[in-house]
């Protein structure tokens, strides 16, 4: 009755990081926007790396509402997809280290997305975390919050509904 030896830490990290980069690196728009993801275990933080091209109001200046919306939507969909992938790779059903954008399983599709703009986005990096409130067989509901300087002072939040990838679509 001995426990199996724990997996070496570098293998665990490699598998999880490979799965995340397979999700993120293959998407041109994520690169165009300058969005990256930090991972701590299964917790993801989206980072919108500031660039002058993200400005929507040059007089204030403030981030473009469309850039903020795209950042929130990307964070929501990557969180949901990573959660689906996580179970697959941790259970060994999918080989995490071997995943590439080409061999990824099908991903959820956005049905609708509602953004709530709470204050103007400042010309600096922004961060976002998403929470999957419901993940069913066909539909998922995801909430996402974004902040800049203080985690408790959100500058935008959003809720989206997603169609889960299935055998029939």
């Amino acid at each position: 009755m001995s426990r199996p030896r724990p997996e070496p830490v570098h293998l665990i990290k490699q598998r999880r990081d490979a799965a995340l980069s397979a999700l993120v690196d293959g998407v041109p728009y994520i690169r165009t926007m300058g969005i990256t993801f930090d991972r701590r275990g299964d917790e993801l933080t989206g980072v919108l790396n500031y660039d002058d091209k993200l400005i929507g109001n040059p007089f204030l200046p403030a981030l473009h509402g469309g850039a903020t919306a795209a950042f929130l939507e990307t964070t929501a969909i990557i969180e949901l997809s990573f959660q689906i992938l996580w179970d697959e790779i941790e259970s060994g059903r999918l080989e995490g280290g071997a995943l590439t954008p080409e061999t990824l399983p099908r991903l959820p599709k956005t049905i609708d997305f509602t953004v709530d703009y709470l204050r103007s986005g400042l010309p600096r990096d922004a961060y976002a975390r998403a929470r999957v409130n419901r993940s069913g067989r066909r539909y998922a509901s995801v909430h996402v919050e974004a902040w800049q300087d203080n985690r408790s002072r959100l500058f935008a939040q959003a809720t989206g509904h997603f169609l889960m990838p299935g055998r029939s679509n």
């Binding site: 728009y29 926007m33 473009h64 509402g65 469309g66 919306a69 795209a70 939507e73 997305f113």
Partner: peptide
């Protein structure tokens, strides 16, 4: 297919 976020940006503008 174009990212939904790009369509959002267009709609917002």
């Amino acid at each position: 297919v174009i990212h939904g976020g790009a369509v959002s940006a267009l709609m917002d503008t």
